[in-house]
Design a protein around this nucleic acid. Structure first.
Lengths: 146, 146
DNA sequence: TATCATGTTGACTAAATTAGTAAACTAACG
DNA sequence: CGTTAGTTTACTAATTTAGTCAACATGATA
């Protein structure tokens, strides 16, 4: 089960926006790209996708940029993955329309298994918010200043 | 998070072998391929990989074929996915060696998040055995005979 | 022991997906 | 207006995945 670079970039972008959420200002794409080592032109697409999913908002023009659309505690890992991939788990049998003849093969049964796994993975991923992730980042970072 | 066709094929192959496990006989690759609609030449690779992971065993020669290496109740979904992909979750930051400078970016923090998710996904997937999956298959199949 | 049906291995190719780039466009501020 | 920054669409390159092939090894059996 592979997590795409795109999905991880998206998480890093949201994490970066989380750090600036208190200040209620927008950040430029370029700044996010530099600070999180994400190819800027690629990040353009990612942020637009996050925006269409309602996770971030933008301000256009000279003083423009991006900010989170809601509080970091209200944005979960699952939200971001779903915004990028459409669903938490992508597997052939989940997208296929299954017919009765498939009953004989393992396809239909496995479809149910994947749906079950997806639900339970959802419970895990929806329980991890960027508020928590960000706090954990501060914590592990502070260890270097003791 | 994408599950490859290869991983799903592997699950279907193990499911097919589960059905014949009681009889303690081997099944030919060709039969598994036909019954589970898997390209035979591709299945060859998959079964070898499952064998190297110790999940199936083979008998060579004229009366050869494949069988499960242990009871279906002792083979989990997690076992099969790990046999195919090496780990449950493949993500750039998990394979990378992280250095201190990465602390500043989200890479290091996310690495911990992915490891956490992987552990918890493992608990889910290791709890789903092919014995159960097979029984569920029988159950849903029998509905068509009422 | 010849042979035939099977598993084994590694190299290869084609298709699909992912990752990344470019450029023209639109909106807002000064 | 000019400059800065987001928007959109199209394109390309790189990588991964899916699948094929052919030569080989093994074991049952006639």
């Amino acid at each position: 089960m592979r997590v795409s670079a795109k999905a991880e970039y998206a998480c890093r972008a949201v994490l970066e926006l989380t750090r600036y959420h208190e200040k209620a200002e927008v950040i430029h794409i370029g700044d996010i790209a530099v600070r999180q080592s994400i190819p800027e032109k690629y990040l353009v697409q990612i942020l637009l996708q996050l925006q269409r999913a309602g996770l971030v908002k933008s301000k256009r023009g000279a003083t423009g940029g991006y900010a989170l659309a809601r509080a970091p505690g209200e944005i979960s890992l699952g939200d971001v993955i779903r915004a990028m991939d459409g669903a938490l788990i992508a597997v052939e049998s989940l997208s296929d329309d299954t017919n009765v003849s498939d009953q004989m093969s393992g396809q239909h049964v496995l479809k149910n298994v994947w749906m079950d796994v997806q639900d339970r993975l959802g419970e895990i991923m929806d329980g991890i918010t960027f508020d928590e992730i960000s706090r954990q980042a501060q914590k592990s970072l502070s260890m270097y200043y003791i």
